[in-house]
Simulated assay, not measured.
Amino acid sequence: MGTLRHFDLKGLLDAYQCQVYLETLTGTGDNVLHAASFGFERLFSAETATEALNQARARLAGVPRAQLLYATREDVLKAVLPLVPAQLPILFWLDGHEPGPAYHQAKYGPGGNDALRPPLESLMAQLRQLRPRSRDVILVNGLRAYEDGPYADGAVPVPEHKLAFYDRNIDFVFRQFRHTHTIVRDYADDGYLALTPR
């Protein structure tokens, strides 16, 4: 499982002046709570597992800058991004996993919902469409769902291996961001991508 603590947030904020933090899966709030200890003016996070969201809200009750939304990943981007000026850099923490099996939500695989495929491609397309000229920092966890590699946590478990072998790649990331961002793979934990403005 990935963690935002893996990254040097202070270094990223100093280098790219990100003032807004937006994550696409709250869980019980570990990552947004960690981000709140840095200099972000506003923090946004989305979750559809009610139990997890309630825990996160309790943990972040003393952080008025943090807004935790009952929303899907796609819906939080649609709701928040039009409110943030394009010239104001955002630090994104995108979860590349399936939607919350740890919180008793739907899973991929037999009997699952094919609409709940690994979400990264649609999220990246949405970011490119809604923030075409931005200088955002984009951090992603769960890279092993998209391609093989020497991950510290091992290969993606077979039941979670929803993508066909010919779909397991991150070509879509390079197509959309190679001209504007430096893209770095990191094989720690279950894998990360870090996209920083050129």
Rank of each mutant, 00 (worst) to 15 (best):
A115W: 07
G109N: 13
I170C: 08
Y187S: 13
N141L: 04
I138V: 14
G154E: 10
P82Y: 13
P159W: 14
P82E: 12
R5G: 15
D186R: 02
T196D: 11
L139R: 02
R198S: 13
A66G: 13
Q87W: 01
T48R: 12
G111K: 02
L43V: 01
L83G: 14
A36G: 06
Q17H: 12
D8A: 10
R57T: 05
P110N: 06
H34E: 10
T28E: 06
A15K: 11
T3A: 09
D75S: 15
A49W: 12
A188M: 04
F172W: 12
S122R: 14
I90T: 09
Q126K: 06
V137T: 03
A61D: 11
L120S: 06
S134R: 07
W93E: 00
Y70H: 13
T180L: 02
F92W: 02
G149M: 04
G100Y: 01
C18I: 03
L69D: 08
L193K: 01
G96Y: 05
Q129S: 15
R178V: 01
H161M: 11
E160K: 14
K107W: 08
G111Y: 01
L77P: 12
R131S: 14
T50D: 12
L77N: 00
K162G: 04
F174Q: 13
A125S: 10
F165M: 04
Y108S: 04
F165L: 07
S45D: 08
T196N: 14
N169V: 02
P150S: 03
A145D: 09
F44E: 05
G62S: 15
Y16W: 05
E147T: 07
P132C: 08
L33P: 07
N169A: 11
P110E: 07
T182I: 06
P101T: 04
P118R: 00
G112V: 00
V173Q: 13
F7I: 01
V63C: 10
V63D: 06
